[in-house]
Every structure is written in structure tokens, then in C-alpha cells.
Design a protein around this nucleic acid. Structure first.
Lengths: 245, 245
DNA sequence: CCAACTTGTATAGTGGAATAGACAAGTACG
DNA sequence: CGTACTTGTCTATTCCACTATACAAGTTGG
């Protein structure tokens, strides 16, 4: 049973060996090579496979145990505690709550903050308004089954959506909130997907180790007439979520 | 001129400070906050902003200079050498060469290797064949203007596409190669997008620093009748490419 | 020319990452 | 029971990331 592919780890690059090893093991778990309850190879075999000292492997495992991904049992071995990665669908009619239905028991969204901002050139182009237009900026976090799944920043023109944060807080759903403004239907214009290391702010809110990878989705929603409603910058923890087109 | 947001950098996490800083600066560049030719803030102001020593900032800059992202001039300052991130469209009819047309002058694909493999349960499900079916596995790298843009692994059923690697090498294009087998049209079934740190193999082939982030696209192409043709696992360097849905 | 900025270089000290080896303590199996 | 495996703990050592300070050397503008 080849538990891990013979991934050789190089010494440097600014990323500690123990972190590279932790990432490699986590990858085998969320990638499906290891399933919940499976027993990991022993520390000594793993150390040999990665070409490092046993203590370096131990540190990597300690991090994954801390994260809740692995579970170590004295004298028996180390086991996979939790494996699955959630899939978030992306399409014309993406709805947050529907997308994850069936994958999680409970879902929730929290508004971190909101404020008025002037449209930069970039935002103005996206929302098809004049630069300097007053926009509402809303910062949110989404949870499912107690784990943070996304950190999003949204912008809407204030003129069309006055008091939006209050309405969103009251309804708890983007779809419902937009209905209050007479928008019965909306769809996704374009989505740009990229990836990068998490910022310290994101790492804090999403409870990630610094240096973790986030998937970034930059989307624009449009109404039935094709007019941009709001633009949304969402960051997903790459080890917990994948996007499905 | 706020060249960089006041991103505070935390000490540890297994990722070196200089790497976190390099990532932060690169993010400002590919994210559009800094454009080609712009002057970066001085090393001392940067060090103060990140809360680190000047030498730590210097090391981060040295890496970006090495990558060709920045250009340092003695006595004058440090400047952005190259900014733009390429956009790779994802849709029903994704064609590699068309997708990047207009963004690059020259494009090329190299076949690294190919071999026969037995379908695992996972691959069998994707290609709608029995587990153990003989598959052709093709490893490729794509370049544009001399820079590596993607590292892909493809699987096709051998029975339907005998000698595929030779045909692909001869035609140089997936679309053309498939025509030889009577497939005039094909489209994308589903695409799953995730992100993670690059493996050492990927870092080598794509010429990335170890610890760099890759976008991973896992797709299935189907013919006009809806039968799976081939499945493709593509890794893009996240700092050079973004995916557009 | 000179003052005030910039990047480049050198040296020295501190703390953490990684290695090495030895041993304690739990579990499984004949 | 006892052997062979496992994870857990300790100590010592080497190497590099990071800090701190100082100064060289290029550029710009008055």
C-alpha cells in the first residue's frame, strides 16, 4: 500500500520542510488518496520517503493533528480524521446556500463590517458606474458545520441599494435581500479565478495557518437586463474547498 | 502614493518572512496596484511597513528581481519590470491556442512523456470505462513567449485513440489530433478548480520557486454524443495565470 | 559641489529549523 | 510473556533566517 507518492522534498525556498511535508500529506488526504479512518505510514518510513529526519515528519504531523486532519494514537499509528473537500458550483445561477446543500448540515453567513466607499477606476468599470460613485462595501464570512469556508468582499452602488447591509443582515441571504429591491432574478456575469497565499487577515478570519493557499473568485452579478448589480471578491481556503464549473 | 497596503507580516508559520513579503509585493503587481515601470517604495519604508528589518525586504526584492518581476537600479530605486497576468478562458469550447490569442505573441506545447496505464477507479469513473482499461497517459508543458504557462497530464482510452502521442506530436494541437480519429467537435464536460502549493516536479518544469502556488484544473472533454474523450489535469502558476469562467 | 536620498556590501549576534541518537511508553501478535 | 512494532519525550549540534549597525557608492536636485 503506497500511502504517499515518493514526493521528494527540497531543502529551501523559504518554506520550511515540515510545512512542505504537511502540505503533501494534506494533499493526499483531500485529493482522495487517503480516506477517513485510513492509517498513515509510520513516522520512520515517512521520514525515509521524504528524505528528512523523523522529527521533521513529527512536526508536520503535529500541525495536521492540530488542524484536526489527523489523529495520532500512541503505540498504534496515525489516522486520517477528516478527509472530504467541499465543492462549490460556479455557473450562471450560483446561489450560496443551494450550492452546498447536501454537502453540509448547517450553513451561515456573518457580516463582519460595511462602509461607504468611492468607486475606484477598477470597480467603476466592473459595475458600469462613474469613478467616484458611492458604493456600499460589505465584508462577510461564511461558515458550514462550524468551519469557515469563505471570506468575501462585495460592492454595490449605494443609490440603487440604500441600507443594503441592514437588509442583508435581516434576510440573511443575498437572493432574499435583492428581492427587497425588486430584483427577482439575477445571474452571474463573469468569474475570474486565481490563487495565492492567504494574507494574515484572511488567515486569521478563516483560521488558516499563515502561508496557506486561498482560491480567489472575482465575480460580477447582473440583473435580468444585464446591468451589473454587485461585484464580489471571494477567498476560499484551498484545502477545504474546490470550485466546480 | 500608497504603494503597498499596510500588510502586517507575522513571524512564523513555516513560511519565511522574506517569502511572505515577496508574495505580498508580487500580489500588488499582478493584482494591478502596481503597473509596469512604477517605482516601488524604498527599502527602508517597506521594512517599516512590514515591521521587519531592511535586509529581510532586500531578500524578498532579490527573489523578485531574479524572477524578472522587479528591476533594481543602484541609487535610483526599484521598479516593476513586468506586470500582467494572463487570462485563460474556461467554457464549453475551450481551445488552448484560441484562449490565449491576442495575449501572447507565440505559443507552444511540448510532450514530456507518454505511457500506457491501467485505469484506476477514479479515472475509470471519469472516462466512463471499466477499471483496469488501458489508458494513454500524456504529460505536457505549454509555453508562451518563452515562459512556462501550464503543466498538464491527460488520459485517453487506448482502444479509441491508438498511437495518440505520435499523432499529437505530429499535429501539435489537441483539436487537430482528435480530428484524425473522426472527432470534428468536442466540448468540455465539467471542470473542477482547486489550488495548492507546487510539487518539486512542477516547480522544476514550470520554473517556479518551491512553495509557489499552482491553480489546478481537473476537466473532462466529451464528444458530440456526450461520451468522455479524455480527462485533463492542468496546473497553472498562480502568479502568471488566472482562469476566466 | 553638496545634502539627501537611493541601492549595495560587510560583519556579528540571536533564535528557530533540521539533524542525530537514545530511550520511554503504548499496542499488537505469536 | 516477550518481541517487534508504534508514538512520545529529551538532549545536543549544525545551519540558516532574521536582526542590528555601519559604511560604500550611485542618483537627484538645489
Amino acid at each position: 500500500m503506497t500511502v504517499l507518492s515518493r514526493t521528494e522534498i527540497e531543502p529551501a525556498g523559504g518554506v520550511a520542510l515540515w510545512r512542505q511535508i504537511a502540505d503533501a500529506i494534506r494533499l493526499d488526504i483531500v485529493g482522495g488518496k487517503l480516506e477517513t479512518g485510513d492509517r498513515l505510514a509510520g513516522e520512520l518510513p515517512l521520514a525515509e520517503r521524504f528524505g528528512v529526519n523523523r522529527h521533521t515528519v513529527r512536526r508536520a504531523i503535529a500541525v495536521l493533528v492540530e488542524e484536526g486532519v489527523l489523529r495520532a494514537e500512541h503505540g498504534r499509528g496515525t489516522f486520517v480524521a477528516e478527509a472530504r473537500r467541499l465543492s462549490y458550483p460556479i455557473g450562471r445561477r450560483t446561489r450560496f446556500s443551494e450550492g452546498l446543500a447536501g454537502q453540509t448540515k448547517q450553513r451561515a453567513r456573518t457580516i463582519l463590517s460595511s462602509r461607504i466607499e468611492r468607486a475606484t477606476a477598477r470597480l467603476a468599470e466592473r459595475l458600469d458606474v462613474k469613478p467616484g460613485t458611492r458604493l456600499i462595501r460589505v465584508e462577510t464570512v461564511a461558515f458550514a458545520d462550524g468551519r469557515a469556508l469563505s471570506r468575501a468582499t462585495g460592492w454595490l452602488p449605494e443609490q440603487r441599494f440604500p441600507e443594503y447591509p441592514a437588509v442583508l443582515a435581516e434576510t440573511g441571504s443575498t437572493t432574499e435581500a435583492l428581492k427587497r429591491y425588486g430584483i427577482d432574478d439575477y445571474s452571474r456575469g463573469s468569474t475570474r479565478i486565481s490563487a495565492r497565499h492567504a494574507t494574515t487577515d484572511e488567515a486569521q478570519v478563516l483560521k488558516l495557518a499563515p502561508g496557506a493557499v486561498v482560491l480567489v473568485s472575482d465575480a460580477v452579478d447582473i440583473d435580468a437586463a444585464g446591468v451589473p448589480i454587485h461585484t464580489l471578491l471571494t477567498r476560499f481556503p484551498a484545502d477545504r474547498m474546490e470550485l466546480v464549473v
